[in-house]
Amino acid sequence: MTDTMNTFEPAPLPATPPERISAWEYALAAVVLAACLLAGLALADTKAPAPAVGVLRFASEIDFASASRLIDMLEAARRDDGLAAVVLEVSSPGGFATSSESIFYALLSLREAKPLVVVVDGLAASGGYYMAAAGNRIYAPPSSYVGNVGTRGGRPSDPALAPDELSSGPYKLEGGSRFDQIHQLDLVRNSFLTNVVNQRTHAALNPLTLAPEELAEARIYLGSEAVALGIIDGEGGRPEGIKAAAELAGLTSYDIVDVPAYLGMEPIISGGEEMVASAQAMLAGAPPGTIFALDSRIPFPEAELPANLQHLRKPRAGADFTWRTGGAPAATFAGSLAPAASRP
């Protein structure tokens, strides 16, 4: 025997060849990654859109309707996380004092949440400037008009008994004596003035340097004058306003959106070329005793002079002055008999 037995040594396994990622797998992976990127970007746009600076244009006289719509829009803008800042572009002669105040407080509320920059587009007088005073910044072109801080109202009347009704108190019908009404005009003006002075004296960029008494004289200032007096913060238009808003919001990249469209609401633009006529229509339709924060250069609607007395109109102090029907002779019996052609 041989002692060598035959021993089995397994044969060495053949070497496992390395896994190769095929080209199509790379391609597929690339497509998948690209798709994920796109999906990620889309997701980011949807769930975390880029911050936007919203531009909201208000070009109207301030009445109950326009104020209500603006306040709704401001409230929606305040709650919308996509809007990082708001630029309010104002072109308004003002209007009702109460509506102007409401807008002012709504803007203050917005300003608590996000930056608000006001840009004057030509005119922000009286109530229009009241709105502007709520902004972090106010910009206006040099030739625009701002200011006219004051109130207006019809001449008060004295209490009188109405022949067709009884009331429970002496001022139920008029709301107060003649001097009560005059005093209230001043009180509203004081609120307006105090709020404006308060906001502007605390302005970070260009605080107010004008004395309150001077501001109370209700002058209208050019944009260039207003900058010098601290009534506004700087000269400029919409681009400057957007830039300032973005800066205040700490944005380096952002979208610019039109707020009404962004929020799916109607823009607030009325009056336009016929701003004066539109404001006068507002005046004519205002409830009795309304106090206005309205551009003083917009005249109150005058009583119609009878046609047969138009030739007797005479100008007063350069303004068109109508000798009102109160002084005109009342209709007479003989007058009613006059030929039709000669009657008004």
Binding site: L33, C36, L37, A39, G40, A44, K47, A48, P49
Partner: peptide, 9 residues
């Protein structure tokens, strides 16, 4: 890639 942009935003 899908979540990064959103998180980054």
């Amino acid at each position: 890639l899908a979540t990064g942009p959103m998180l980054w935003r």
